[in-house]
């Protein structure tokens, strides 16, 4: 299927936080409680629509194990978006976020959009990390934030799609040089000739109206969040 853009995503975070499950839920709409450990990196792809444009997400689901860290870093290059995942029922996975973030910033391009995800929101009774803590961390480091459940699929779509929206917005603003493949964005076959002239899009206008608070607005208006 033809697409206007292709975005490369990476999913990073401690082992067992549900990275592969998030991917599976997003690409296959199913949940698999028992999962093999990811070796190196696995892949998934899905088409989404933003602003009437088909966008293909090419997702690199990296291994979370510490011993794979030096290898998975190699995969960061050329990612336009990152989902940084922790487990709300395990504080240590939240504590490691700074390290992950440093790693990600160091090994990928500076414009990469990072979405912080507190996964396993269905396990409210075992929660160790408050939602406010996640929000605070995200605010402090300039990330987007969401709590998700790969099991119930709550917010999973939104997490992937909102990241794409942010990337798309950055393209429209000219922050991303779409001709530089190192940014993790590729122009699709159908779109190549026209993309440069179509900067003033509906989405951009909407984004301009709502301003920088667009994301928090999106977040709080999500029914699953309230």
């Amino acid at each position: 299927m033809a697409y206007a853009y292709l975005f490369k995503y990476i999913i990073i975070g401690d082992t067992g936080v549900g990275k592969s499950c998030l991917l599976l839920q997003f690409t296959d709409k199913r949940f698999q409680p028992v999962h093999d450990l990811t070796i190196g990196v696995e892949f998934g792809a899905r088409m989404i629509t933003i602003d009437g444009k088909q966008i293909k997400l090419q997702i690199w689901d990296t291994a979370g194990q510490e011993s794979f860290r030096s290898i998975t870093r190699s995969y960061y290059r050329g990612a336009a978006g990152a989902l940084l995942v922790y487990d709300i029922t395990r504080r240590d996975t939240f504590n490691h976020l700074t390290t992950w973030l440093e790693d990600a910033r160091q090994h990928s391009n500076s414009n990469m959009v990072i979405m912080l995800i507190g996964n396993k929101s269905d396990l409210e009774s075992r929660r160790e990390v408050k939602k406010e803590e996640g929000e605070a961390f995200a605010r402090e480091h300039g990330l987007i934030f969401m709590e998700t459940s790969a099991k119930t699929a709550s917010n999973v779509e939104e997490a992937f799609i909102n990241t794409a929206k942010e990337i798309y917005e950055k393209i429209q603003e000219g922050v991303f040089d779409i001709n530089n493949e190192a940014n993790g964005i590729k122009i699709g076959p159908q779109h190549a000739a026209t993309n440069a002239t179509h900067a003033g899009s509906l989405f951009l206008r909407l984004a301009a109206q709502t301003g920088p608070l667009a994301h928090s607005l999106t977040l709080s208006s999500c029914p699953a969040e309230t």
Partner: peptide, 12 residues
Amino acid sequence: VPQTGWGYWGSW
């Protein structure tokens, strides 16, 4: 035939 698709070969 529109140039679509081929213009980008050179670029990225």
